[in-house]
Design a protein around this nucleic acid. Structure first.
Length: 271
DNA sequence: CCTTGAACCTGCGGGC
DNA sequence: TGCCCGCAGGTTCAAG
């Protein structure tokens, strides 16, 4: 479900809701998500205070007062909620972390592609499992030149370049499509065919679109919900993802499957 | 190394 | 109404 703007919205809301709270109880209701959940039960979490929550890539990282962190990934259908602990459990609520204020952090994920782990922080201050992932698209490290260099020698489609987490993190199927449309670049163009100028334009467009999406609380197409249950309003700003007609020229959009993902584009505007 | 495809899951909407 | 098919904001691993 979430790409970077959705994960950012969740992490900000969790920071507000969880900072300063002490964990009183941890329950799991399914053996595993993407990884086993049993380690949560033997991690000695009750009594630990949560310092705050931040985001890296599509992960929400809730720091604990003992140098470890809760690391959440939302897969395709994961939802985090903070609500009254007495509220009855939903069908796919797999993890419930009860807090000292009578509320609970609840992780719901029907498809179970998500993850909920406790991890040590590495020397860089981030959970060890996040080492080696690509640059943050909203950081100064994401530049046209960097993207251009990464694209050299790659025959893979330009869209896969934008979605490759080992290069740049957090741009998923929706925002890759929107970024390519904004730049007039066809998603199936080989990455190696991108010019310096085009890479610079892609970087500018991606940053602008991601920032706007964060401002609107992300994009809700199907399942995504913010921590308070609200929907992401950027869905109203989508120009090409899921659209039948191009908003720029009015011609019918086309779909192509790249890397197993449906990719919308305008054959008239994107080359 | 690079690229592709499959695997991991449930739910929902459309067609018959 | 019920069944089958295709499709959904992601990640990872194996094989060519």
């Amino acid at each position: 479900m979430p790409e970077l703007p959705e994960a950012e919205s969740i992490a900000r809301a969790l920071d507000h809701a969880l900072a300063g709270r002490v964990i009183t109880k941890v329950e799991v209701f399914f053996p595993r998500l993407r990884t086993p959940l049993a380690p949560l039960l033997s991690a000695g979490l009750p009594g630990r205070r949560i310092l705050g929550c931040r985001r890296r890539a599509r992960y929400a990282v809730a720091d604990l007062d003992d140098g470890r962190a809760l690391v959440l990934h939302f897969g395709m259908s994961g939802v985090a909620r903070v609500e009254d602990a007495r509220r009855p459990r939903r069908k796919h609520e797999h993890v419930v972390v009860t807090l000292d204020d009578g509320r609970a952090l609840k992780f719901e994920d029907p498809r179970r592609f998500g993850a909920f782990e406790v991890q040590e922080l590495g020397p860089d201050g981030w959970p060890v499992s996040l080492a080696g992932i690509g640059v943050e698209p909203l950081s100064d490290d994401f530049t046209g030149e960097m993207l251009f260099l990464a694209s050299r020698g790659l025959r893979r489609p330009a869209k896969e370049l934008l979605m490759d987490n080992s290069i740049v993190t957090g741009i998923g199927n929706i925002y890759a499509a929107e970024t390519l449309f904004a730049c007039g670049i066809a998603p199936q163009r080989p990455a190696s065919s991108l010019t310096r100028r085009e890479c610079a334009a892609l970087v500018r467009a991606a940053r602008r679109i991601l920032r706007a999406a964060i401002r609107l609380g992300g994009t809700t197409v199907h399942d995504f919900r913010n921590v308070d249950g609200s929907e992401g309003k950027f869905v109203q700003r989508l120009k090409i993802y899921g659209k039948a007609k191009c908003p720029r020229c009015g011609s019918a959009t086309a779909k192509v499957v790249l890397g197993g993902r449906t990719s919308w584009y305008c054959p008239a505007c994107q080359h």
